[in-house]
Structures are given as structure tokens and as C-alpha cells.
Design a protein around this nucleic acid. Structure first.
Length: 487
RNA sequence: GGUCCCUUCGUCUAUCGGUUAGGACACGAGAUUUUCAAUCUUGGAAGACGGGUUCGACUCCCGUAGGGACCGCCA
């Protein structure tokens, strides 16, 4: 290595070693919000240190594996912009290596063949429960001479966990967590069919992939203890563990479908921006002083493991919406249109062309976008705000709108129509000027005229600025809509 | 039940023994306004409880209560 020491490495900015992190979902369902957050944390930390972020699919349980789920997870990560290094690794494909390690443990006396049947175990468990006694597997095969191994019975390989002393997990988030070894029993590492069990596979893979930092949900904390024991048995270096708190529903209970344990693709089709979702997620359990908005570069620059909190956070859709509104306002108009078009087929709340926008509508939408995005918290709300563009004559007026178009209003509209017919320049400024002149002449407040116009043109009492809508709709369409309420 | 973890405004959080306990979202009031927003001003709102340690605790220690996670030949 001939690396010249750079200036930055010597200065105050700590020269962090590039780390290797990973995200290791099991493909049993979609990528949920909690998974997205752990993936984000891992990704951010890798970026922060200039390291690598790897992806591994934990698919050793073939019965629960689904390739659609894998695809959904990859799509979700891509949508969020969490790109991984190299090819995603399939854990299943490494079964031979896992078995090899299990056998190495076996021959070094750190594991043993166990012939306890599932029924034996179930009985022992039931008995312990009946006696209100904590259950731990105590296999009679643990200390038996390996030569007495049964033949013809498949059996499993169990890890010979230490019975004395304690196992300490040094966790960068949770601190020093001590487990008494007598509480940890001998876990199966290789099934009777020769396939590996999760806790073994994880250790072997993380080691082989040279993972330096394992960031995952606290639900894995006890696994960290058992995994630490396997690391020691293999004489491998234990990675840095960081067990992040889980995300709860708004009521503090476990996140269920009712609360919004939606797949990431649901957030997409609800009209959230990936940047907003990332921003919201990174603030759940992590902070950087009073900062709330993190442009990606800042997020990467500031993200650290020491500022991760230890308590569970609740999902707050109002805050997510606010963050999303912020990113919508910052986004480019054509980018927003592209994102809207991407989710158009999934929009069921508004009458929009599912097939896509025609050239005219897209141009109108683009023109109105600066006004629309100021009023929307989600892409769906943008579309809802733009509904007047998708409407076809005759425009149906809702109750409030119908009320606004009373006899007096119709009189004014009739007068305005004549005025508009002669307008040279059909744009918002000119139109507004015309209406203002008319209002002044009649001694009316502008709202007295703008509201009926809005009602007649959009069918609603609220809309984007009405003169802008008129401009975008064009002379012909606008006048036609106005005349329609006069008959 | 056992083990482990957590506990500051309604929510997300700041505070790293000395602050009028700060910010953001949400909520209330006002200003502005062609509607709705946006924006600006402004208000209310918190250290679970009980003991210690200390000159001094939100901050450290212990206990209680509440919440959570894990206890599979699942991951």
C-alpha cells in the first residue's frame, strides 16, 4: 500500500475507516418501514465512511421464500435510492459453506449431534411451562461420546454453548449488554436435513463477507449473544453490533397493518417522495442537534452511530406528510410530473386518466405545478388539486360551489363573460386586471367575483388561484364552462 | 413466566450535573389573502413515580410502575 497520507486524515475531521455494512432481509414479504429504516442506517453509515453496503437475502427457509418478495424488496430499496455494492447474495446458495462450518465446530468439540426429537422437545417445553419454570434445552447428547452417535437417525447439530460465565454484547446503540450463559441454551445450527439455521448462517456470511458493522433491529439482540458465542467458537472477530429500536404504531403498540406497517411501495403509491421518506425515517431514533431537514449530502455527512437513540419511536403520519410537503416544494416541476405519471394507474381517489396524460394535460399540469405543489402534502394531493384539468363539461358543481353560483353571481358572471370575450391577452395577469376593474366599477370586493368564477370553472369552492386556472384552461374552455352555468 | 431493553411537551427529539428545559410536527390565536394553502407573529404543552449520591440532578445509582423485544430443526 502506497497511500499518501492526505491532509484531511490528519486534521480534526476524524478519519473514519471505511466500514462494510449489510442489509439482510428475509424474503417473506414486502420491504416494510422498519426494514427500510435499518437499510437506510446501514447505507448511510457505509456512505459516511466511504465503505461498502452489501445486500444479502436470508432465504435459508425455502418454505417461506418467495421470489416476488425478493423483487419487492429490491424494488423498494431502489426506489429509496439505497443502492448496494455488488450482487445481492443469496444465503441459500451458501448452504454448503454453512454446513462446512457446522462440521468444523463438530470436530473441534464445539458442537454435537443431538437426536432429541421434535416431540421430546415439545414435551419438555410443555412441562417447563406447566411448572412455570424457564425452559432451556438440556440435551443428553451434549456430553455423550461422539462415537455413540446413532446411525440411521438424522439428528441435528447443536452448538455447545458455554454453561458458565457470561456473554457480553458490546453494542454501539444499546451499550454493554450482559447475558448469563446459563440462560442461553444449545441452539440447533444444522437441521436434520443438513441445511443451516439462521444464527449459524448469519455468522458465517457476515464473517465471509467481511462485514464490520451489523446494524439491525433490537429484536435481534439476543441473537447477537448467541452469535457472539459462535464467533468465539470459530475464533473469528466479532463485528460491531448496533441494535436499533423498532418503530411502533401511532398508539405505541406493535406496528401492524392497521397502523401503517405498509410495504414501501404503498408509500410510493400514496404519493410520498423517497427523499422525504428517508428524511422522516432518519429522524426516527436519530438526531443531529435541532436539524430537521437533511439534504442527502448532509444526511451522509452527519449520520453517526453514537447519536442513535435507544427507545422505540412511533410512526407519525402528520410529520411524514409535512416533511413530504417540504420536499415536494423543493422538487422540480417536471420531476413531480414524472413521479405522478409513475403512480397514475394506482390512483383511485381522483378521476384521472389511468392510461396516462395527454400532451395538452401534461403541459397544463406543468404550468399549474408551482401553484399546486405549494398546496399539497403528497403527489396524490397534487393530482386532486389539479382535478379541474381532468374534468369534462358539463362541470358538476359540488354543494358549496352550487351555493356560490346564485342569481346575483350569475349576473356578474354574464357581465364578466362579455368582458373576457374581448380580452386581447389571455393570461392570469390580464384576466385578474379585468376582474379587478369590474369589481371596482361595481363597488365589489374581488372575492365576490373570484369565488363564483372558481365555482363555475372548477366545480368547487377551493382550487389553485383561479386566474391561473383560467389561463391554463384557455379562453375557449373557460368561457364554455362559464356560459354553462348561465343557461 | 424467564432474560434483556426502554421511559423529556400529544408525537419525533435536544440537553452529555448548574438552561426561564430548546427545536420540529400537530393544536389554539392573530396578520396577510380571490378560495385553499404557503408565509410571518404568537399561545398553550414535558423530565412516569419513590428513594438515594451531590453544594446542585432530566442528566449518576437503586427500587416501583408502565411499555417493548426475545425465548423454534422461523428469520
Amino acid at each position: 500500500m502506497q497511500k499518501k497520507p492526505t491532509r484531511t486524515m490528519a486534521t480534526t475531521e476524524s478519519a473514519l475507516k471505511p466500514v462494510v455494512t449489510r442489509f439482510a432481509p428475509s424474503p417473506t414479504g414486502y420491504l416494510h418501514i422498519g426494514g427500510a429504516r435499518t437499510a437506510l442506517f446501514n447505507w448511510l453509515y457505509a456512505q459516511h465512511t466511504g465503505g461498502r453496503f452489501l445486500l444479502r437475502i436470508e432465504d435459508t427457509d425455502r418454505a417461506r421464500h418467495s421470489s416476488e418478495a425478493v423483487a419487492a424488496i429490491l424494488d423498494g430499496l431502489k426506489w429509496l435510492g439505497l443502492d448496494w455494492d455488488g450482487e445481492p447474495l443469496s444465503q441459500f446458495g451458501r448452504a454448503a459453506r454453512h454446513a462446512e462450518v457446522a462440521h468444523a465446530l463438530l470436530s473441534s468439540g464445539k458442537a454435537y449431534r443431538c437426536y432429541l426429537s421434535a416431540e421430546d422437545l415439545a414435551q419438555a417445553r410443555a412441562k417447563a411451562e406447566a411448572e412455570k419454570r424457564p425452559f432451556a434445552v438440556r440435551s443428553p447428547w451434549r456430553d455423550r461420546d461422539p462415537a455413540t452417535a446413532l446411525t440411521g437417525v438424522p439428528g441435528v447439530i447443536r452448538f455447545k454453548a458455554p454453561r458458565e460465565g457470561e456473554t457480553i454484547v458490546h453494542d454501539i446503540v444499546q451499550g454493554r449488554v450482559v447475558f448469563q450463559n446459563k440462560e442461553l441454551d444449545d441452539l440447533v445450527i444444522l437441521r436434520s436435513d443438513g441445511t443451516p439455521i439462521y444464527n449459524l448462517a448469519v455468522v458465517v456470511d457476515d464473517h465471509d463477507m467481511a462485514v464490520t458493522h451489523v446494524l439491525r433491529g433490537v429484536d435481534h439482540l439476543t441473537n447477537a449473544a448467541r452469535q457472539s458465542q459462535i464467533y468465539s467458537a470459530m475464533d473469528w472477530e466479532v463485528p460491531v453490533f448496533g441494535h436499533v429500536p423498532l418503530i411502533h404504531g401511532a398508539d405505541g403498540a406493535k406496528l401492524s397493518k392497521r397502523h401503517g406497517a405498509l410495504g414501501i411501495e404503498a408509500y410510493r403509491s400514496l404519493g410520498y417522495l423517497p427523499a422525504a421518506l428517508k428524511n422522516y425515517l432518519v429522524r426516527l431514533g436519530w438526531s443531529h442537534g435541532d436539524a430537521e431537514i437533511f439534504p442527502l449530502e448532509k444526511m451522509i455527512e452527519w449520520f453517526d452511530l453514537t447519536s442513535l437513540g435507544r427507545s422505540a419511536a412511533r410512526m407519525d403520519f402528520a410529520k411524514l406528510a409535512d416533511t413530504n410537503a417540504h420536499y415536494i416544494r423543493e422538487a422540480g416541476d417536471s420531476e413531480l410530473i414524472a413521479r405522478i405519471e409513475a403512480i397514475l394507474p394506482e390512483l383511485d381517489t381522483v378521476a384521472v386518466p389511468k392510461s396516462g396524460l395527454d400532451v395538452t394535460t401534461r403541459a397544463q399540469l406543468l404550468c399549474l405545478m408551482p401553484d399546486l405543489k405549494l398546496r399539497a402534502k403528497t403527489l396524490r394531493e397534487i393530482v386532486e388539486g389539479a382535478e379541474c384539468l381532468f374534468m369534462r363539461r358539463p362541470i358538476a358543481l359540488d354543494d358549496k360551489a352550487a351555493k356560490l353560483v346564485d342569481a346575483e353571481a350569475k349576473k356578474q358572471i354574464a357581465a364578466l363573460v362579455t368582458r373576457f370575450t374581448d380580452v386581447m391577452q389571455w393570461d392570469a395577469t390580464t384576466l385578474e386586471a379585468q376582474v379587478r376593474v369590474h369589481a371596482e366599477a361595481g363597488g365589489l370586493k374581488l372575492g365576490k367575483l373570484a369565488q363564483p368564477l372558481r365555482a363555475a370553472i372548477t366545480g368547487k369552492s377551493v382550487s389553485p388561484p383561479i386566474f391561473k386556472v383560467m389561463e391554463v384552461l384557455g379562453r375557449e374552455e373557460t368561457l364554455a364552462r362559464l356560459r354553462a352555468v348561465l343557461v
